[in-house]
Computed example of a mutant assay.
Amino acid sequence: MNRLIIAAAAIVLTTPLAMAGPIDNACVRSDRGARQTALCSCVQQVANQTLSRADQRRAARFFRDPHEAQVVRMSKSDRDNAFWARYKRFAGAAEAYCR
């Protein structure tokens, strides 16, 4: 029993609080992100709370291709409009939380 408790404690103590996700990875690889790793990590934490994993992967592409964000924003597709509404909520929350 003691070995199990010690092993569990070791796992908890060595696991990072926030594992890198698609938003964090894209942010860090961006021009400004390499200098702002704490901000990128914070934005990923907000993404984990507000976006599905699929939405995170889609939003991460905006870092590589900002024009894609404009295409989605201007789209007439219901799917794109629903995503854009979720993305705007995420962006607002990240802006407020990660100052």
Rank of each mutant, 00 (worst) to 15 (best):
S30M: 00
R86I: 00
P16F: 06
R35Q: 13
R79E: 14
R79V: 12
D80L: 06
R32G: 11
R64E: 12
M1H: 11
K88N: 14
Q45D: 13
Q56A: 05
K88F: 06
A7G: 04
A10D: 04
I11M: 11
Q70V: 12
R73V: 02
A85Y: 05
P22F: 04
M74T: 09
Q36R: 12
R89H: 11
R86N: 15
S52L: 02
S77G: 03
A91P: 00
A18H: 13
I6D: 06
K76H: 12
R79N: 07
R79F: 04
N48T: 05
Q44M: 04
A20H: 06
D55G: 07
T50N: 08
A69K: 04
A93S: 10
V28W: 02
A93W: 00
W84S: 07
L13F: 15
D24I: 00
G92L: 11
V12M: 10
R79L: 08
A20P: 06
D78M: 08
D31V: 13
V28G: 02
Q45W: 01
A69S: 07
A91G: 04
Q36N: 15
V46E: 05
A34F: 08
R35W: 09
E68G: 03
A96I: 01
R61M: 11
P22N: 08
A93P: 00
T50Y: 04
I23Q: 05
L51P: 01
R57F: 09
H67A: 10
N2E: 14
S77K: 09
Q36G: 01
P66I: 08
Q70T: 13
R29D: 12
I6V: 15
P22A: 11
